[in-house]
């Protein structure tokens, strides 16, 4: 497992430079627009997308087929991608924490932003990986986009429609209390995702 992670982290080395340049660019954008959360979102998405990038590198080299002839099981290959996703989300979390803290925001807000972005990253991984394992990168990418945009679309349209239809949004206090159940929702999502990926990968032929 450690070998697999080392492989991914080294293999992504070219991406780190690109990432650094992008980060500098978006810090400037964030500072000029005054929107702190924006930079945080960019960091989280770009870091977590590296997991997907590593999978497309692997697919291109037909690495999985090769790896399975080593003392590596199908389970190891699946779990290593979740670990990589978690690791990158963790790295994004730390960057966000440092960035937001340097903006001299109240610590509660700093933590709030960093944690919720990490949560979104992990949710993204959980939603996307089973599809990528099942359909491969080419079809998987399309599905990934749908996974990203359909919920966003529904929320955006919903937010506009609800007041128009004469419905009222729930009380902000109720919404805020929902925050406390989110970690559990996330945990369940990760567990279900890992189980389905393992199942998909077990039956995969190369």
């Amino acid at each position: 497992m450690r070998g697999l992670l080392i492989k991914d982290l080294i293999n992504l080395k070219k991406q780190y430079r690109v990432l650094l340049v992008m980060f500098v660019f978006y810090i400037v954008v964030s500072l000029t627009s005054g929107d702190n959360a924006f930079f945080g979102g960019v960091v989280s998405i770009m870091m977590v997308m590296l997991t997907v990038t590593s999978m497309s590198y692997d697919e291109y080299a037909k690495w999985d087929k090769y790896a399975l002839t080593m003392p590596v099981s199908r389970r190891d290959l699946v779990l290593s991608k979740y670990l990589l996703g978690l690791l990158l989300s963790g790295a994004a979390f730390i960057i966000n924490l440092l960035y937001q803290a340097s903006m001299e925001l109240p610590y509660k807000e700093v933590l709030g932003i960093a944690f919720s972005l990490a949560g979104v990253s992990i949710l993204f991984i959980s939603l996307v990986l089973p599809f990528l394992f099942k359909y491969g990168m080419e079809k998987g990418r399309l599905i990934m986009m749908m996974v990203l945009f359909i919920p966003t679309g529904i929320i955006m349209v919903g937010a506009k429609m609800i007041p128009k239809m004469g419905l009222t949004l729930p009380d902000p206090d109720v919404l805020n209390s929902l925050v406390y159940i989110l970690p559990f929702v996330l945990l369940i999502a990760v567990a279900v995702s890992i189980m389905s990926s393992l199942r998909i990968y077990r039956n995969k032929e190369f």
């Binding site: 293999n11 590198y57 080299a61 037909k62 690495w63 090769y66």
Partner: peptide
């Protein structure tokens, strides 16, 4: 050793 399967490119 297989004909078409290698270590990934950037290594």
């Amino acid at each position: 050793v297989m004909e078409d399967s290698y270590f990934p490119d950037n290594l």
